[in-house]
Design a protein around this nucleic acid. Structure first.
Length: 111
DNA sequence: TCAGTGACTGACC
DNA sequence: GGGTCAGCCACTG
């Protein structure tokens, strides 16, 4: 069973699980790491299924500008923000402050 | 089977 | 600097 044989979702989950505490990444970064940079939407869609998987920190995945576009998929309205703030990440108006400072690139860090 | 939709992104104006 | 458009692929009706 090679990693390449894993489902697209499995890959997304695997990368998401590797996101360090207090760090965040973008859908595009994950998609690019998986070799499907054009399919960033699929990463987000995959995250939809990750919502039921506690092992996948979906709240650490946001869009390229640090905007919490997927917060509406969480139970509450500010759950995603609360989780991020709990990790020391500053969030204001659904957007991460100093996003680049917290950004975690799987292509460079995980490699 | 076809068409619409989506937790996105990059290019273009 | 920000608004708009097309492309990406899987799922749903």
């Amino acid at each position: 069973m090679k990693p390449e044989n894993k489902n697209f979702f499995e890959k997304v989950y695997e990368v998401a699980k590797c996101i360090p505490y207090g760090r965040v990444t973008s859908y595009g970064a994950i998609a690019k790491y998986l070799g499907t940079a054009r399919s960033a939407r699929m990463v987000g869609w995959a995250m939809n299924g990750a919502g039921s998987n506690e092992d996948v920190p979906a709240h650490r995945v946001v869009n390229k500008v640090g905007l919490l576009t997927g917060k509406h998929h969480f139970d509450g309205t500010s759950l995603m923000q609360q989780l991020l703030e709990n990790e020391g990440i500053e969030v204001f108006e659904n957007q991460i402050i100093d996003f680049q400072k917290y950004f975690w690139d799987p292509g460079k860090e995980l490699d």
